[in-house]
Write a protein that binds this DNA or RNA. Structure first.
Lengths: 231, 231
DNA sequence: CCAAAAGTGTTGACTGTACACCCATGT
DNA sequence: ACATGGGTGTACAGTCAACACTTTTGG
């Protein structure tokens, strides 16, 4: 078949995982142990195996490079995972033409247990605003992922994938504030969000802290859906 | 390098070109001359050449399979071209694992001169609603492209790429009506569209038809931009 | 009782939508 | 003269943004 005429480029899958930690939006990166870009931070990624789908490869990268638990496979622990874009410039990898099918993931911080293991490439959460150089075109990939995050939050319910099962309205509001980088009005936020019908209140309250306890809410559905109205 | 360990999948670029003809939204398809799926309609696509970018390959497919003129290269004649999605299922091509980086294009019908040539694979415009089987997963690709078209029209100015340089407000409105499949109110449409500031009126009018001549408008800019407000 | 966050309504500005008639031209 | 699409304004409803005080708890 064509293989004899056309020499395929190499194909990798790289994933941008976002999570919120310490009131900051962070990305999971590893440190490269081999050239090119040895010692630079990079997105966890792998070359596709024969007959492996890009999505499976993306998940495999999360397990083998970033030390995420196996359940990732079933989608249990990664709140959200979707294809982002395919980067295919001839010059993005000095080793030869390598296209990267990139993925975009959201994980609630409390379920992101990063396995620290000698065999892994020191996966760590990096704040987004710190400049610093990254391997390959990974900075560009992350900035595209950030744009995607912004727009997804505006017309879908995927915030659920950054929050634990139960959360307060303020924690929800805070998530938006961190990601969009601006303060929102508490009353307007509650009114609007409750009117979307995405969440329902539980009888539980967040207790044991020294203020008035807040009511806990949960999402009616934790499957991605488009909103009728914009958030 | 990795090539010895990982066997790359084949890589193709396939393009969904939309245009409006006879008050209908249509896609440009070719008829396959070889198995698999011989004689089925398919998106124009090619295997990537060594070191060729996917976008260049997509354009090459338009030229060599669909007979579009050379200017396509410079982006002159294709109003709009963007990457759509990468389809990578192991099973989409019976010949072996073949990933397809798909593109999404909009062309004004009057600048789409389809070259009919024995060497080409009978490119034709197909109405979108006709069912009929397509090669590979191309039906799925087209339906994703259609969704993308709908959303792009709502938050960007890319309609310009379906219209000739000068057009009447009614022609513009009609384009939206065809794509969204519903009638719009003339007065509201004009008010809203003019308030977006994307178009400006010219002194010219559409003459020689048997009604009152309509004013011709043109886009201020024919570069893709996101709208501040939704359309 | 004090600190800290929780919770709660109203108003004015703006935006979207529904709706009907006269106008200019070619035949 | 008539058929055809071109062109125009108003009123109501819904949505968005701005804004401040009382409540509940732990310490």
């Amino acid at each position: 078949m064509k293989k004899t005429i056309y020499e395929s480029p190499y194909v990798t899958a790289d994933t941008v995982i976002f999570t919120i930690q310490d009131n900051e939006l962070k990305v999971l990166l590893i440190k490269r142990t081999n050239p090119p870009f040895k010692d630079y931070p990079a997105l966890p990624g792998v070359f596709l195996l024969k007959n492996e789908s890009a999505r499976d490869a993306a998940v495999r990268a999360l397990q083998t490079k970033a030390g995420l638990p196996r359940q990732v496979k079933a989608g249990v622990k990664v709140g959200y995972l979707e294809q982002l874009y395919t980067f295919d410039s001839r010059f993005r990898d000095p080793r030869g033409h390598t296209i990267s099918i990139t993925y975009f993931a959201l994980v609630p911080h409390d379920s992101l247990k990063i396995n620290q293991n000698k065999k892994l490439q020191s996966p760590k959460l990096y704040p987004l605003n710190k400049p610093g150089h990254l391997a390959f075109d990974h900075k560009e990939i992350i900035s595209l992922a950030l744009m995607r995050l912004h727009s997804k939050l505006q017309y879908t319910n995927v915030v659920y994938s950054l929050l634990p099962k139960y959360f307060t309205l303020f924690e929800l509001q805070n998530t938006y504030e961190i990601i969009f980088g601006k303060k929102l009005d508490k009353r307007n936020f509650r009114k609007k969000y409750l009117s979307l019908g995405l969440i329902k209140s539980t009888r539980m309250r967040r207790e044991g802290i020294r203020q008035r306890p807040a009511q806990l809410y949960e999402f009616r559905s934790r499957k991605p859906e488009a909103l009728k109205k914009f958030f």
